[in-house]
Simulated scan of single mutants.
Amino acid sequence: MRIFKKNEKKETTKLPMTGKVKKGFRFYCVMVMAMAMVAGTSMTAFAASDPLTVVNNLSDFIFGLIRAVGLILLGWGIVQVGLSLQSHDPSQRSNGFLTLAGGIVITFAKEILTLITG
């Protein structure tokens, strides 16, 4: 017993397209791709007048990334400590506290370095 009838004969036919339409469609595709390339590759670069400003901006960016990694580790450490308290596993608890401490150190790495260097 068949519930759905499958169409065994599948035929594909090309849509009729004359030469002028093909040429116009090609021109349209080329123009869209050219505009996408122009819009995607043209970018204005503003240079800072002071090289020290560029270095400070790069340093802030890198320390921002490091802070993001530290916050992720901090969150994972909190999760590990919570799971270890639930399962009463001392080795998991020590790993959780180590991850928590590492996340704190990495999160505040810039402030620690400025305290050390003065």
Results as ranks from 00 to 15, higher is better:
Ala45Met: 09
Met17Gln: 11
Gln92Pro: 01
Gly102Val: 04
His88Gln: 03
Ile104Leu: 15
Thr53Tyr: 14
Ala47Pro: 09
Asn56His: 15
Arg2Gln: 10
Arg93Ile: 00
Gly82Cys: 11
Ile66Gly: 00
Val38Arg: 05
Gly70Leu: 06
Ala45Gln: 11
Thr44Asp: 01
Met17Cys: 02
Ser59Glu: 15
Leu58Thr: 11
Leu115Ser: 14
Lys23Leu: 14
Val105Gln: 04
Thr44Tyr: 03
Thr13Gly: 01
Thr114Glu: 13
Ser94Glu: 13
Thr13Glu: 12
Val79Phe: 09
Cys29Pro: 00
Ser42Arg: 08
Phe61Gln: 05
Ile72Gln: 03
Gly19Leu: 13
Gln92Ala: 14
Ala47Leu: 08
Met43Asp: 06
Val79Asn: 06
Gly103Tyr: 11
Ile112Ser: 04
Ser84Asn: 01
Lys20Arg: 10
Ser59Lys: 12
Lys20Ser: 07
Thr12Ile: 15
Leu115Val: 14
Met43Val: 08
Thr117Glu: 12
Val55Glu: 10
Lys10Phe: 04
Cys29Asp: 08
Ala47Trp: 07
Leu85Met: 14
Ile116Leu: 11
Ser49Met: 12
Ile62Met: 07
Ala68Tyr: 00
Phe4Pro: 00
Asn95Thr: 08
Gly70Gln: 03
Gly70Arg: 02
Cys29Glu: 04
Ala68Ile: 00
Gly82Trp: 11
Phe25Arg: 03
Leu100Asn: 06
Met35Gly: 13
Gly103Ala: 05
Asn7Val: 10
Ala34Ile: 12
Lys110Arg: 14
Pro90Asp: 10
Ala47Asp: 13
Lys5Leu: 07
Lys6Trp: 08
Met1Val: 09
Ala101Asn: 06
Lys23Cys: 03
Ile3Gln: 00
Ile78Met: 12
Val21Gln: 13
Lys110Cys: 04
Thr41Leu: 03
Thr18Glu: 10
Thr18Ser: 10
Leu65Pro: 00
Thr107Arg: 00
Ser42Trp: 05
Trp76Ser: 02
Thr107Glu: 02
Leu73Asn: 10
Phe27Thr: 12
Lys20Pro: 06
Phe46Asn: 02
Val54Trp: 09
Gly77Glu: 02
Gln92Trp: 02
Val105Trp: 06
Lys6Val: 06
Pro90Lys: 15
Lys9Gly: 01
Lys22Asp: 01
Val81Trp: 13
Met31Cys: 08
Thr12Met: 05
Gly82Tyr: 08
Arg26Thr: 02
Gln80Thr: 11
Thr99Tyr: 00
Lys20Gln: 14
Gly118Val: 06
Ser49Thr: 13
Gly75Thr: 06
Met35Asn: 09
Pro16Phe: 14
Lys23Trp: 08
Lys23Ala: 14
Lys9Leu: 03
Thr99Asn: 05
Thr44Met: 05
Pro51Val: 13
Met37Glu: 11
Gly103Lys: 06
Gly40Asn: 12
Thr12His: 14
Val69Ala: 09
Val79Trp: 10
Asp50Ile: 03
Ser87Ile: 11
Gly96Asp: 00
Lys10Met: 06
Thr13Ile: 15
Thr53Cys: 03
Leu113Ala: 10
Thr44Arg: 02
Ile112Asn: 05
